[in-house]
Design a protein around this nucleic acid. Structure first.
Lengths: 335, 335
DNA sequence: TAAAGTTGTCGAAACGCTTCAATTCGGAGG
DNA sequence: CCTCCGAATTGAAGCGTTTCGACAACTTTA
């Protein structure tokens, strides 16, 4: 391994000088700087990460805590991940993968050994057992998602309540009066997952506010279940003319199910999805965007800010944006 | 931070003794051992990862190089990831996430700074520009996938050629004589991706061998394209009674497309998928399993073996396994 | 009983980097 | 001409581990 001493010798300067060239923490004459840079290039020198971490007590690594349990939609997770990694790299940080199944235990281990400078935790539940630990840890953390109490934390999330409401408003404005809601798989609700519950709540409240009849049902992620759920919704509420879907995995089967039950989209039943934009685009669905990339990016930016000692708001909510597409149309008034 | 010196002081021994208790590299009397262990527990001591890496020149971290480009099916990728991470943890290693878009550049950086002890590279192309670099790097690497030349490497892959052939054999045994092949999105083939091409090759060769007429077409991952591809296949080969699908994203729409074109599964057209077992199970498709977990696990095991100085075979091919389900049936002989 | 192991423990030297205090060296100010 | 100052550079002391050689205290063996 080529060390800083090798570079120093090659350039005819002291190791400390090389270090200062690298970090820019002291002024160095242009001649020396170029000379050192040249030696670095020639020798192919890379600072030893461990040594640096030891000397600076900064690892330049953040932990990304990934959910890998039933009900989470993996492609969406990957969107978060790429955005987070890209953003981290922009700040010269690397990303250590920690799976949620390692639990609080895993966080403690990684934090204790100073392997990482901070944590980005995804898929936080309303009442998450990792939250107390995160609060008291030396390293800062940012949560994607929103536990019951955000005091002392830094959380980023889509405003799912508004998202649910936004769907209702859009449909209500188009004249729909009976709306169904197709939610995430039931395990997600059982797990007390904030985003799912809040979307439902926002949806329900908005419906009440606008005097609209609403029915909600979870949906598992296979065709049969989706079909069953849709059939059930239609049976419960025969006048239903619109459907809000908050379930990426079910999305592909909704149109088919409706068709199988003799309903056309959007003429008989309008559909609004809450999902990443690309998915909606691909299926030509009116949708409230789930800005996974934006969330991942913002979360990482906030984490970096905290690492640099800047204070951050406990809760950042991104406003939902609705994109109109072919799956919604004004309600047809029949004779 | 609580250091090894703190523990030593607390236990009334030398720091080196604590180290030996931790690593077990020298015999320690039971009394001392328990005394030290107790102090460690009490003080909540965790060895500093950087310091350890510096002293041992081992980071106990492996890099996982993830593909995040169009055409890769993210849920499958995540399966690899979880298996790899779980296996790594079993060997007391952590996983650093490197996205493929960081390219050879990123590999060099991570390797040069001694952040990781080895590399697990996913989604390797037939002619991958990272391969030469991997060959000459100090750290060992294991590839999931199979470049053109495997000499000097360690590769793990499903035997896609046999997988393609296996589908043909299954269908031929059932009496089918005209078989279609629905492949990955065309970008995947353009990129010279080994697994896609090899599956096709195996499929084609087996069809020739068994005197079966075959037609192949790529499929993009939206309903319209799948429908178009299927229609095109049926037009090209009107007598087609079976379809092999090697495209996870298209899978959900194949049955629908066939139905839309007036064909029933499996009576008119039998379908065999090449995909993870759970997906096939869920859709009740006869399939050749894509053992993502198994591949991820094996790859990591091989990497650990190499890290411990054990030699490994350049290529490990997992044999394909076919699981019969409701989507295939003997060909109906019509009058 | 002396020599030759064993076993358990310790002290000190690495590992490769950063950073503080000290030093040198021109040039500006008196 | 001497002093003082700022800019550029250096030497050495850490950062928290591991590990090697040394050593004391026993236990065998001769």
């Amino acid at each position: 391994m080529v060390t800083i001493a090798d570079v120093a010798r090659h350039a005819g300067v002291a190791p400390s000088t090389v270090s200062y060239v690298l970090t820019g923490k002291r002024s160095i004459s242009p001649q020396t700087r170029t000379k050192v840079r040249e030696s670095i290039r020639l020798l192919g020198y890379h600072p030893h990460a461990g040594a640096r971490a030891l000397a600076t007590s900064r690892a330049n690594v953040v932990a990304l805590v990934l959910p890998l349990r039933p009900g989470v939609h993996l492609p969406v997770v990957m969107r978060f991940v790429t955005a987070a990694v890209t953003t981290a790299r922009r700040h010269d940080m690397d990303v250590l993968l920690v799976t949620a199944d390692q639990g609080a235990q895993g966080l403690r281990r990684v934090a204790g050994s100073a392997q990482v400078d901070g944590f980005l935790v995804m898929d936080v539940e309303l009442d998450d057992d990792r939250v107390p630990l995160l609060r008291q840890m030396a390293q800062p953390s940012v949560l994607i998602g929103r536990p019951a109490a955000v005091k002392g934390l830094t959380c980023v999330d889509l405003d799912f309540e508004s998202a649910g409401a936004r769907c209702v408003d859009h449909l209500a404005d188009l004249g729909h009066r009976y709306i169904g809601f197709l939610g995430a798989p039931s395990v997600v609700y059982q797990r007390n997952t904030g985003y799912a519950q809040r979307t439902m709540a926002g949806f329900g409240a908005a419906a009440m506010r606008r005097g609209i009849a609403s029915t909600a049902l979870p949906a598992e992620d296979d065709y049969e279940s989706v079909l069953a759920s849709v059939r059930s919704l239609l049976r419960t509420q025969p006048a239903m003319t619109a459907l809000v879907v908050h379930n990426e995995a079910a999305l592909g089967w909704v149109a088919g199910s409706l068709r199988a039950l003799g309903r056309r989209v959007p003429d008989d039943v309008a559909v609004v999805a809450i999902c990443p934009d690309e998915l909606a685009e691909q299926m030509q669905l009116t949708s409230v965007q789930l800005p996974a990339e934006e969330l991942g990016r913002q979360a990482m930016e906030l984490l970096v800010a905290r690492l640099n000692g800047h204070p951050t708001a406990p809760l950042t909510l991104l406003p939902p944006k609705l994109a109109g597409r072919a799956s919604t149309a004004p309600r047809l008034r029949r004779a």
